[in-house]
């Protein structure tokens, strides 16, 4: 089967070349420069600067906080919406419209999506107007430049992912199992928590992983909604490259971000493995 080897070579030549040349090696360069300094060669100084400094820890904590809350809220809002779309909506056309509304944000730029929130969350934006006319607040609240504002924008951008993964898992659950649980004396709530929910857990986890990894490395939304008052890791890294031009320290920040992302994805996929019934979804 020498010809099969040859075919394989030609199939893989370009992909391997491009991804080595423009992905692996560049990341390698970043890795190397994060461990070196112009004067004194090999050094851990850049990582020390990150890890021994309260400010950096505060940025990392903010990044994590936003990512964790985004994930939790996305699951908490995404599950009912997925349930609604899969189990409650009867009218096909309405369902279809909802799905289009759900994926439309995925097809539009983060900018456009965040831009809408900038308008909405502004001092005289719609949200403040509504809250004031409802009498819930009497002075406009500040959303822009707060973590709450960023969170509102992030959840907005990431919510479709959880709805889609949970919805897919939910659609695959055999309704007969729920009926069996009901038949065996379970209340609807009991049947949900002991049968349906565990069977959709892999969808929940898959969605959560996507949301978390995207939230932790998000740049555009925090940058736009922070008004320069909240800083996350990706913003810090970007500054080093775009304004300070410190590739070594910037590299260390990038690698930190990369490692955090990979570690969390690894952790989450380890947690879900062995606990996913039917392993239907990926």
């Amino acid at each position: 089967m020498a010809s099969a080897r040859l075919t394989l070579f030609w199939l893989l030549a370009l992909p391997v070349l491009v991804f080595t040349g423009f992905f692996l090696i560049p990341l390698g360069v970043v890795l190397v420069s994060s461990f070196t300094a112009p004067e004194d060669g090999l050094t851990l100084a850049h990582y020390a600067r990150i890890l021994l400094d309260a400010y950096h820890w505060q940025v990392i904590a903010t990044t994590f906080r936003i990512a964790i809350f985004s994930t939790l809220i996305c699951v908490a809002l995404g599950y009912p919406l997925a349930w609604y779309l899969v189990r409650i909506v009867q009218l096909r056309s309405w369902r279809r419209a909802c799905v289009i509304l759900l994926v439309l944000p995925l097809f539009t730029s983060n900018i456009v999506r965040s831009f809408g929130w900038m308008v909405l969350l502004g001092r005289s934006g719609l949200v403040n107007d509504a809250l004031m006319s409802l009498g819930l607040i009497d002075r406009p609240m500040r959303f822009l430049g707060t973590e709450t504002g960023i969170l509102i924008g992030m959840v907005y951008i990431l919510l479709p992912f959880t709805v889609l993964t949970i919805g897919t898992a939910l659609a695959r659950v055999d309704r007969g199992l729920e009926q069996a649980a009901r038949d065996l004396g379970a209340t609807p709530a009991r049947a949900f928590w002991s049968v349906t929910f565990p069977l959709t857990l892999h969808g929940v986890m898959a969605g959560a992983i996507i949301v978390f990894s995207m939230a932790i490395s998000a740049y555009v939304t925090p940058a736009l909604l922070s008004g320069g008052k909240v800083t996350v890791l990706a913003m810090l890294a970007f500054q080093q490259y775009s304004t300070v031009f410190d590739f070594h320290y910037g590299g260390a920040l990038s690698i930190t971000l990369l490692v955090l992302t990979l570690a969390l994805i690894g952790l989450a996929s380890r947690m879900t493995r062995g606990r996913t019934p039917g392993a239907g979804g990926h």
Binding site: F22, F23, I25, P26, L27, V29, V30, S33, I210, S213, I216, S217, Y219, A234, A237, F238, Y241, F247, G250, G251, S254, I255, L257, L258, T261, L262, I265
Partner: peptide, 14 residues
Amino acid sequence: VLPHIVIGAALLQY
């Protein structure tokens, strides 16, 4: 799954 900002930075430096 990797942060695009990191890929962008890497490509810029490289």
